[in-house]
């Protein structure tokens, strides 16, 4: 499947801080891949990246690319932006999605009527490149 790239959504003043723990996730996203941590000891797939597996506390972790398929668990449309300088226009839907492989993540759904984003909606990952990194967002599947 072709990778969808988005632009103009992130606030350049409010980007993730890249470090050795999370670099793999954000660099993969710049290349159009949704990578999460997999614990090689107990097999747990987890997001967000942490130095230890949140189930067994092993530090033996690897990056695993996921399908990018996800389901919306819940959505909240933002009409009043959280800070005045935010470049993107409101309204926009913030969601918690369940990735097909298990982990949940907070993100946004783009490319559709915000009111159409409801629980159970099938979405797939899309990527916004910001400099050397990428952010994972979602679009209708």
């Amino acid at each position: 499947m072709t990778v969808t790239y988005l632009e103009g959504l992130a606030d350049p003043e409010v980007l993730p801080r890249i470090d050795e723990v999370n670099r793999g996730h954000f660099e993969a996203a710049a290349q159009g891949r949704l990578a999460v941590r997999e614990c090689t000891a107990c097999g747990l797939l987890f997001h967000y990246p942490r130095p230890f597996c949140p189930r067994c506390h092993s530090a033996e972790l690897k990056w695993t690319d996921l399908s990018g398929d996800a389901t919306v668990l819940v959505a909240a449309v933002v009409s009043r932006p959280p800070w005045n300088e935010l470049p993107r226009a409101a309204p926009y839907p913030v969601v918690v999605v369940r990735l097909a492989e298990g982990p949940q993540m907070l993100s946004t759904v783009e490319g559709c009527d915000p009111a159409a984003v409801v629980p159970g909606m099938a979405v797939r990952a899309a990527f916004e490149r910001v400099g050397d990194i990428g952010m994972v967002r979602f679009i209708p599947a």
Binding site: V78, W83, V94, L106
Partner: peptide, 30 residues
């Protein structure tokens, strides 16, 4: 606004998606 959000959500995995505090509560409430 921005400083408040830095305090109340994850600065790397939640904040860049620009939720507000009402948004985060709203996800739970919804």
């Amino acid at each position: 606004g921005r400083r408040l959000m830095t305090m109340t959500c994850h600065p790397d995995y939640e904040l860049p998606y620009a939720p507000s505090i009402p948004t985060l509560y709203g996800l739970i409430a919804q």
